[in-house]
């Protein structure tokens, strides 16, 4: 079963390596991984799509990483999921009108137009992107790139980067064990 995991982490060099290393260790393939800024400076937000028998365990090991602030498996939650694909399609003059019409159905837009090709930008649910690509394939896809999905829970429940980071408080100093 595919899992979608959202993780928030400090934007440090090497943090991506630490995250990926955990999946590699278990032999889990990462289907897609996107990382970018979150609502808070210095905090990155990552969406990982992976398949494995014990994703729950990996999630907990992920949380154990010092730089990881929060990890949520949103697979079972109602989420907004988006993906962008850039597709370079053969587009001689004779088919351009048909191509543009097809794109309109999926809300895809023309990002670039050349003498014999078009670059089409599709944004939507990953399944929507799949369907649009199916339609474009007969025209002849020369090049294609998908970003991988980003996900956010619907409604007011929020996975904020780290509420404690908002205050100017120092993180609590923990007592030594024993």
């Amino acid at each position: 079963m595919k899992h979608t995991i959202v993780a928030l982490m400090q934007d440090h060099p090497g943090v991506l390596h630490r995250v990926v290393s955990l999946f590699r260790r278990r032999g889990y393939n990462i289907d897609s991984l996107t990382v970018g800024r979150s609502e808070l400076p210095g905090v990155s937000r990552m969406t990982i799509v992976t398949e494995g028998s014990d994703v729950d365990q990996v999630t907990r090991q992920l949380f154990r990483l010092i730089e990881v602030l929060k990890v949520v498996d949103v697979t079972e939650s109602a989420t907004v999921e988006r993906e962008i694909a850039l597709v370079k399609v053969n587009a001689p003059g004779s088919v351009r009108a048909e191509l543009v019409a097809c794109c309109a159905v999926f809300g895809a837009r023309t990002a670039d137009l050349g003498p014999s090709t078009m670059v089409i930008e599709i944004t939507g649910e990953p399944s929507e992107v799949d369907r649009c690509l199916d339609v474009l394939r007969p025209f002849g896809i020369k090049e294609m790139m998908r970003t991988g999905r980003i996900a956010m829970i619907r409604g007011s429940l929020a996975h904020e980067a780290a509420p404690e980071l908002r205050a100017d408080e120092k993180p609590p100093l923990l007592a030594l064990a024993g």
């Binding site: 982490m9 400090q10 990483l65 010092i66 730089e67 990881v68 602030l69 780290a162 404690e164 980071l165 120092k170 993180p171 609590p172 100093l173 923990l174 007592a175 064990a177």
Partner: peptide, 12 residues
């Protein structure tokens, strides 16, 4: 200098 470990909060 203070610790900058917002992601490290062991639960005792």
């Amino acid at each position: 200098v203070s610790l900058q470990l917002p992601g490290y909060r062991p639960r005792y």
